[in-house]
Amino acid sequence: MTTYIDGKAIALRVRDQVTADVAAAYPDPDTAPGLATVLVGNDPASAVYIAGKRRAVRETGMRDLHRFLPATTTQSEVAAVIDELAADPAVHGILLQLPLPAGLEANPLIDRIPATKDVDGLTTQSTGLLSRGEYGLRPCTPSGVIELLETEGVKMRGAHAVVVGRSALVGHPMAEMLLQRDATITIAHQLTTNLAAVARTADILVVAAGVRGLIGAEHVKAGATVIDVGMHRTANGLSGDVRTEELDGIAARVTPVPGGVGPMTIAMLMVNTLRAAQWVR
């Protein structure tokens, strides 16, 4: 039997714990951790994502310090807003929603966010802290995957983990976080020669390639845990990078789309915002 991991339930437990911790540590709502989400332009998908993040901030008792900038905002104007938020002691976390409108460079803007407020874990400094195994804020989606694996009791130490995907947002930090938990790591991608043979060696298969339906039964060995990070909108609803229906009876555990990794990303953003507020500066 294949177990479908209930990311919604696990995310709710994480968010409930954050809510309790915020209430205990910050009885005055005016001193609660503040998250500044920055949305540039009117991309519909980004607007939906930001709305979900802002709602979660309020539901956990933290302060929603959202900033909206029109699509015509220049690079220097966005930089000035980030610098302002970085200097504001009431702002504990800063999140620059991606992608940005054409003409804006993301990386230089992201690197203006102090590591202590980098709730997305994407700055060069945060990446370095992760690589060295030092305290820092980790990217939310890989953190959510680790939380799922730990909650499900999936053994990482000594396991062979294959990460399909090499992005700075998920693939690279995911591999590093698994490695730090004593897994043996292989990083693959959609152009890997004989991807199916490589993927079939995995005890833990994390798929974050951004290619709908890339992974199927031929890629998965019996008893593996399969984590699908992909998210694709179709006429029939959401689907992932994994052809999940093919894995029934093959994988030991698999995350569905929707309802698997997605809810964990926002839950771990709440965790990061609280951690940022409690980081000794």
Rank of each mutant, 00 (worst) to 15 (best):
A90I: 03
E77N: 05
H92K: 08
I187D: 05
V145S: 00
L169G: 02
H160Q: 11
A80G: 08
A106K: 10
I146K: 08
S167P: 04
P142I: 00
G153V: 03
A86F: 09
A90V: 05
V81G: 02
D111E: 06
D120N: 07
M177R: 01
T116S: 12
A115Y: 10
L100M: 06
V162D: 07
I185C: 01
D88H: 06
A79S: 13
H92F: 09
L178H: 03
I82K: 03
A183Y: 02
R181P: 05
A159T: 07
C140G: 05
V145W: 00
I187N: 07
S126W: 09
R157H: 10
G171T: 01
T151R: 14
K155P: 05
A90E: 13
E84H: 12
A90P: 00
L122Y: 09
L96W: 10
L149V: 14
S131T: 12
V91E: 14
D118S: 13
Q125I: 14
A115M: 06
D182M: 03
I82Y: 05
A115T: 12
T127Q: 15
G136P: 11
T74Y: 08
A188M: 04
S131E: 08
C140P: 03
P101W: 04
G133T: 12
A90S: 12
V145T: 03
R166G: 02
A115Q: 12
K117Q: 15
V91L: 05
R181I: 01
L137Y: 09
G128D: 14
A188W: 02
M177H: 02
L96G: 02
S76F: 12
V162Y: 09
R112V: 00
A80K: 13
L148T: 09
L100V: 05
L178D: 01
T73S: 09
S76R: 15
T184R: 00
P89H: 10
H160E: 03
R166M: 09
V154H: 10
I82D: 05
A79D: 11
P142Y: 00
G136L: 11
E176T: 12
S167G: 10
H92S: 11
H92V: 04
I146V: 15
S167F: 04
E147Q: 15
H92R: 10
Q75N: 03
L96N: 06
S167R: 00
Y135T: 13
Q97H: 14
M156L: 15
A79Y: 09
G136K: 12
H172G: 06
G121Q: 01
Q180F: 10
T186N: 06
